[in-house]
Design a protein around this nucleic acid. Structure first.
Lengths: 352, 352
DNA sequence: CTGAAAGCGCTTACAG
DNA sequence: CTGAAAGCGCTTACAG
């Protein structure tokens, strides 16, 4: 069987317009040096034929390489959460690098705002064509996106969003709703009147995203007329010792704590504390499919993990930039990831 | 910036082997008409250079079109479950049809074994290059796969598996574990000693897959030393009336039923019954992200839906065939899908 | 402002 | 058993 030839190409357009294919190419890519008249004629024919460019041929012939930047926190000894998006990025890279797409990696330190700004500057100097980033430091991210926007460099956010910016897209969780789901999961093991502890372990002070999670959680309790007292503990020093100290204090003050919700992936740190202090009957819910978390999930110390497919976020982010830059494909401004519920029973088949 | 040229192509291989690129091409595709000696030499160079073919160029130059068959149940008035895999197939098709991949659709009737065999015959006569299918009728599927295997036509199963066949791959749930997860979800709302009703609504008599789900469910109760009596009802006539009749009977016989598990997507049918008979305090868990099921989930009549991303199964199945046929990429024999837990709270963001 | 020609890395008849 | 040449549908210098 042979390929049928229902699709028209540049050659046919050129023939109908009585011009050369070079001129058609110029119009196709909005390059200068074509008279308005020919341009108009060619555009009409393009529309008439519903011309679809052959990306295969285009990428094959093109000598241009497209450079993308991935700009996320460095994997640290404390948490390797950001390894997942990176895996997704690499998976995307493997698929498209033959087609002239290169990806440069830029990492910043979650505990160091300056490292973010330094890397942001480097990205700018590198002259990339698009950026996939985690807007962890909100104000700095805003500035960076604005600068990119001036240069017409598309930027996609993952993991958390900064609304009302000139970013091409956001790919990540609906944080409010994810807190809402977390609250539901918490309640499965709870008696009606005991206290709930919300633990927020992060050096970040803006903490824009944690507020949304917290609000989602509280909304659930309100919507269901649950009267449990909700206590909040903020822990700025993210090491185990500091976490243990804060938790010990909280348990001293509040005897009736029977459920803990950790607002990010550092739930393993709380699990370690619970394991050591042999507090067994406490419901524990947190975020993210990290190796350490899974271990505690298996042991029954963590009850549920909420996950937002970080690997997929990285993969989709790169692919969206690629589609947008190479094929001028439209990209939806917000793409919410599923709110996945991972338990001991289904973790084996979870696809990060 | 220009593409760098680190990758070697057929030209370089030909140069090093002192042959023409046509001969290299012959070796690359295991075509006949090359002396053992040249073949060996070329293969050595291919290995040495770690040659990676440029699929872009390959598909562009090739005149061959590849035809795939999708072979699944027809969407019926009773259930539109199979629309999801079909959407995935169409999404894959949209991505790869420009590259000479065509997909033919073959549907059979879930209540009619003969329709399966008739379509199977048609697929064979159509001379397709690969098949993505649901092996709903186990024995017939076995025969079909064997026949395809003789003709070296790769076959991929989705949704349910038939083990030990000559299929290229299975992409779908681990049914035992999915029943196990279902049991866990059931127990959230249960008092300790009441009865559990397992409802199996299907015209299919082999019911190979339902057995595995059932076993998973019972295992959970055993593993957790739960003494609840588990009653099983099989309903061959899949209409609402028949379902209502069987359930009424079950509730008469067993007063203490407080949880129902439906082994497939027809949980909406049970939900309708519960809604009408105003039995409110019964936990209900079933399968699949159908519009009707979601409605009952929102209303709180269904507590949980277990889902296996049927759309993704269709998409991946086609892409795996494509990778295998076009780039001779290896395909894993079994790919288990995640066991997703969908609730009222997270359904809005679920990606089928 | 426009066109002729070479080339991207393959595949495919065709000729020998 | 092997090779020279055309061509897939584009892009890219280069020349005018």
């Amino acid at each position: 069987m042979e390929k049928e030839n229902t699709h028209f190409g540049v050659k046919e357009i050129a023939r109908r317009a009585n011009v050369s294919i070079a001129t058609v190419d110029r119009v196709l890519h909005n390059r200068i040096g074509v008279s308005e008249k020919t341009k108009k004629k060619i555009n009409e024919i393009i529309k008439e034929l519903d011309y679809q460019p052959n990306i295969l041929a285009s990428r094959l012939a093109s000598k241009k390489i497209i450079t993308l930047a991935i700009f996320i926190p460095r994997v640290s000894a404390e948490t390797d959460f950001w390894d997942a998006p990176l895996r997704g990025v690499k998976r995307a890279e493997a698929e498209i690098k033959k087609y002239g797409i290169h990806i440069h990696h830029f990492f910043f330190d979650l505990n160091d705002k300056e490292s973010f700004q330094k890397q942001a500057k480097l990205i700018f100097e590198a002259g990339v064509n698009g950026v996939l980033m985690a807007p962890t430091f909100v104000d700095e991210a805003r500035q960076f996106v604005e600068a990119c926007h001036q240069e017409k460099i598309p930027v996609i956010f993952i993991d958390s969003n900064v609304p009302e910016q000139h970013n091409l897209s956001y790919i990540g969780p609906h944080l409010f709703q994810s807190g809402y789901v977390g609250a539901k999961l918490l309640t499965y093991r709870m008696k009606s009147d005991r206290k709930v502890l919300v633990v927020n372990i992060t050096a970040e002070t803006d903490a824009y995203s944690y507020i949304q999670i917290d609000e989602g959680l509280r909304s659930y309790f309100r919507d269901h007329h649950l009267k449990n007292e909700i206590i909040r503990v903020d822990i700025k020093d993210t090491d185990d010792l500091s976490v243990a100290r804060h938790l010990t204090e909280a348990f001293h003050k509040h005897e009736e704590i029977e459920a803990i919700f950790v607002t990010n992936s550092r739930v393993f740190s709380v699990a370690r504390f619970l394991q050591k202090s042999t507090k067994s009957n406490i419901a524990l819910v947190g975020y993210d499919f990290l190796q350490e978390n899974i271990q505690f999930l298996r042991e029954g110390i963590i009850d549920f993990l909420i996950c937002h497919q970080p690997e997929e976020q990285g993969y989709r982010g790169i692919m969206a930039l690629y589609q947008n830059l190479v094929m001028s494909a439209p990209v939806e401004k917000i793409h919410f990831m599923p709110i996945d519920i991972v338990t001991k029973e289904n973790e084996a088949f979870y696809q990060n």
